[in-house]
Design a binder for these strands. Structure first.
Lengths: 203, 203
DNA sequence: ATAATGCTACCTATTTCTAGGTATTTTTTT
DNA sequence: AAAAAAATACCTAGAAATAGGTAGCATTAT
């Protein structure tokens, strides 16, 4: 019987070793390598072509989602399962769009883990299901609005932002007005909190 | 030969299993229990009195530092090793002050891990050494200042916060002034960004 | 016991932001 | 080509926050 060849990439060595040991118990799984660095992981995966790669999102060098995208783009035969601490619909969607075969939270238990790996090996996809909280309206900010918020996050005043982006102060005010209206927020702290809760990044 | 009895608490089950398996390989170590919840862990530890408890900082119920403090206070014989993702001098100092025997990063490798456990078992203390990057000033916010920021994050005005916390508006303003001075931030968005970057939570 | 820190409170002039609007131009979508 | 969305700009009154102070009292460390 052909063993499932698995590669692991996570910046926390403890997770790597934990997974490794978890997998070594299984006699249909063979561990082919690991890395704590995204760039190294990508190279390794391209070279070793494991059946499955378990990739953390946050890694030095290159994040797991970018690696996924690139592997998919290069038509690598390796199926990626994203490992994440975050139950975040955007990450999950990114993972799906970038061609991953799975998205698992790090607090997944051993049984589910192994089940997921076996399912993915047979070509099925398994994505963590997000709870109901995702029902609330999503907020869409325009690129310009995000620009403004980014500048605000750096402590800029309307005037400074206007200068920076070659706008009039009134325009900056209008954008901020629109942002407040869209988000229903009353001050900047509240705005950032809501953006964080809604999982909106300014890139 | 007496085996070292170890308890593990971490909200990420993967870490728990990883550690568990890592330890099971060692024939002088015996695993006596684990939990993903701080409160449960504390009870378990008090009851089972393991030789060593590996505690995560972030856990639902009760954080590892608080547990450490309480175990020390109750003169528990269990020696605590804090497990953390953060190379943060404040956490390390807390761990020391609360009577922990060790502070290890989660990306510690297996060898160092086992070494640390054995050292701690003999009564030695082992704390992660922080790199030079810790040169940048750390920001210490007082509980009251955190209260104010929390309220601000909920979109409250100074007046509303004053009412809420039974303070005068002037006092709220003073706190905000001090917060700005401490953090070197110019507006609320900037403040929240800096707090995030510095890994400061408002609890 | 002394020092340091944290929390509280006040004052004033100035700056910044908000909440209502309206309105033109550019870009994107259909 | 028409419609929709995004980005731009302006006005005004009023609300809110800032920057510069000073200072008393309570609690915690040393």
């Amino acid at each position: 019987m052909k063993k499932i060849r698995i590669y692991i990439a996570d910046d926390h060595q403890l997770i790597v070793e934990g997974l490794q040991r978890l997998l070594l118990d299984q006699d249909d799984i063979i561990f082919v390598g690991s890395s704590n660095n995204g760039l190294e992981a990508e190279q390794d995966i391209l070279q070793k072509e494991p059946d499955i790669a378990l990739l953390d999102i946050r890694m030095p060098g290159k994040d797991g989602l970018k690696i996924t995208q690139n592997l998919f783009h290069l038509q690598s035969p390796t199926k990626v399962i994203i490992l994440s601490m975050y139950e975040d619909i955007r990450y999950i969607n990114d993972a799906k769009n970038f061609g991953a075969y799975g998205y698992l939270l790090k607090n997944t238990c051993r049984e589910e883990f192994l089940e997921a790996i076996h399912l993915v090996q047979t070509g099925k996809k398994i994505f963590h299901k997000i709870e109901a909280k995702q029902t609330k309206e999503l907020i869409f900010l325009t690129p310009r609005e995000k620009d403004i918020i980014k500048e605000l996050s750096h402590g800029k005043t309307n005037q400074e932002i206007a200068d920076e982006l070659s706008l009039s102060v009134q325009t900056v005010m209008t954008h901020r007005k629109n942002i407040r209206a869209k988000t229903g927020t009353k001050n900047l702290a509240n705005l950032l909190l809501v953006l964080k809760e809604q999982g909106i990044d300014l890139e």
